[in-house]
Design a protein around this nucleic acid. Structure first.
Lengths: 167, 167
DNA sequence: CTGAACTTTCAATATTTTCTGAAAGTTTAT
DNA sequence: ATAAACTTTCAGAAAATATTGAAAGTTCAG
């Protein structure tokens, strides 16, 4: 297989994976392109390679920077901005997980905590089931949350340990 | 808080969580409603409670049945079909993860395996980076895949062990 | 300052995804 | 067999999401 065909296949596949897990396709494709790039990449290169607009490219890069996995890199003597992606998957994957957990899971945990405080006077089966289920989901989510925090915290090598134990 | 307000809040929150992780909002809301239901629920009850169409309700139930977390329940003397959701979160959560892994992660793993076979003659930096990155992502994904299989397999109590060790 | 080079924003547009509802299909009672 | 009761399907409509591109904003060399 030719290298560029292989690269495109990877970028395409990665974009689709993103889509089905709530990450914008362009964002995932920009990430894929940056991961495969040996050198810092400019906005124009991304636009050209992925056939997307300047606006889209800019927003996608911003999102990746918000995840903390992409940073600006100044190339000496160049006005233009260049971007690089953290290349160590043991660093970037946990970062993305950590941010997504913070954004999308923590708010749910808060609501669950609030709903757990609900305590009915009557205790009809509708109340009983509510308490049981919210309780179960809350406790389960809280466990997941704690594990995720440990696995994603940069200081710890929990991810490695996990794979040693369970892989 | 009144029980119905609490129920609606849960259903709403759960629907939004689903949305941001690639699960249709209606599907997530139907799941939430079923989880909170003390008794088997009919299509009409769901339509009424969630204000969604018959078609949508039917499709959502089908998806939940495909995940293996909802089943039909015949109520004696009733023509209509009723549905129940597995109530034990230690059973239903791993089931959903397992199906999603199968559907959405395994195909990516296959592509990665294929791309790993790519071996360039020249070995310019573009090829080197490609090999390194695809190699890293493949190896990382394969580890995640193995852990996920273990955690989600119904026979094992790996999930419990994980939470004991890392929770 | 000035204006060229570059980046960011955002209203309008396009695309994708989801939802509806009526028609077709199925099952069951008589 | 017939028809009522119920379920499934799917083409079109609606809604949500993503994308564009040009205008506004910023930066910086001269």
């Amino acid at each position: 297989m030719e290298i560029n065909v292989a690269r495109e296949k990877f970028i395409e596949t990665w974009g689709n994976l993103g889509s089905s897990w709530g990450i914008n396709k362009s964002v995932a494709q920009v990430q894929a392109f940056l991961l495969l790039a040996p050198d810092p990449v400019s906005t124009d290169e991304l636009m050209e390679a992925l056939q997307i607009s300047r606006g889209n490219t800019n927003m996608s890069l911003r999102q990746l920077m918000d995840f903390g996995v992409v940073s600006k890199k100044n190339v000496p003597g160049q006005r233009k901005e260049y971007f690089v992606h953290e290349k160590d998957i043991w660093k970037w994957a946990p970062k993305i997980m950590a941010v997504r957990k913070q954004r999308e899971l923590n708010p749910v945990l808060e609501v669950l905590t609030e709903l757990k405080e609900f305590s009915a006077a009557g205790k009809a089966s509708i109340e009983t089931v509510f308490e049981t289920q919210v309780g179960e989901i809350h406790s389960f989510s809280a466990k997941v949350s704690r594990v995720a925090d440990k696995l994603c915290s940069s200081k710890s090598d929990m991810l490695l340990k996990l794979f040693k134990l369970f892989g």
